[in-house]
């Protein structure tokens, strides 16, 4: 690897398993955004999953093994950007707690936590990014739970969307859980569906053409319901809306 730019401007992109495996296009949108904000993007090729399913599923030792591995993987970078509040929260919030009794990794987990940024936080707080993309029309924003309550992500994505010219209309229950919850939606499908129905009705009531979020799990859940019920509302990660158009 050549060192043509100063190392401090290098950003490691941790795509998250859902973006990596289900919606790779979002990964490229994130990369273009970070580039457009003036940083170099590195995608560590050995990245997999942050460990949330294990951490939340009662497999603490498995989650710890995954955390140690990801810490080794991401420690070399000055900035780590994650296009997900829950995976970002996992690394920044839960790794230090999980590994607090680990003599080697406790300190490393804390140091990594200081360098991990959820995408909107990185773009607003670190890069003070002014989107080059111009948006029209109205969108509504869904505050994904972990980003909102673990990382305090609230105004950042809205600020970015508004800087790009979109009109953000608030729904009544923007902070209500959509019912995804990782394995929750598989283990408790009836409850998940009840929550999702409320969420989709709340989105629909805004009249917005697009619902935006920063969490692919929620987006897949919401989008799947919008499609199943024939509602003509698009569900997008904010990176998809904000990424500069591809020059192909």
């Amino acid at each position: 690897m050549s060192e043509e730019k100063p190392r401090r401007r290098e950003v490691a992109l941790f795509a998250t398993c859902l973006v990596d495996l289900v919606r790779p296009d979002i990964g490229f949108d994130v990369a273009r955004l970070v580039l457009d904000a003036g940083f170099k993007v590195v995608v560590p090729p050995l990245q997999t999953c942050c460990g949330q399913p294990n951490y939340n599923g009662g497999d603490k030792s498995g989650a710890m093994a995954m955390a140690r591995r990801n810490i080794d993987l991401l420690m070399p970078y000055e900035y780590v950007v994650v296009p997900s509040g829950s995976c970002g929260g996992m690394i920044a919030h839960h790794y230090p707690e999980l590994l607090s009794g680990d003599t080697v990794y406790a300190g490393r987990a804390r140091r990594l936590a200081e360098r991990v940024y959820e995408l909107s936080r990185f773009l607003v707080d670190v890069a003070d990014y002014q989107p080059s993309r111009r948006l029209e029309g109205t969108v509504t924003y869904h505050d994904a739970c972990a980003g909102l309550r673990e990382l305090g992500i609230k105004s950042g994505p809205r600020t970015l969307l508004e800087r790009a010219g979109a009109q953000v209309v608030e729904s009544g229950q923007a902070e209500a859980c959509c019912g995804f919850g990782g394995t929750f939606c598989i283990k408790y499908p009836d409850i998940s569906n009840a929550m999702l129905e409320r969420k989709v009705a709340d989105i629909e009531a805004t009249g917005a053409a697009t619902v935006v979020a920063g969490e692919l799990g929620c987006l897949m859940n919401i989008e799947g319901k919008l499609h199943r019920t024939g509602r003509p509302i698009a569900a997008r990660h904010f990176a998809q809306l904000l990424a500069p158009e591809q020059k192909s």
């Binding site: 795509a15 495996l21 790779p24 990964g27 598989i186 499908p189 859940n221 799947g224």
Partner: peptide
């Protein structure tokens, strides 16, 4: 249990990391 109540976006054939 997912597709009982909602659709699932079909994944792309190649992962982001592989494409990158």
């Amino acid at each position: 249990n997912w597709t009982r109540d909602r659709d699932f976006p079909t994944p792309s054939p190649t992962s982001f990391v592989a494409q990158w």
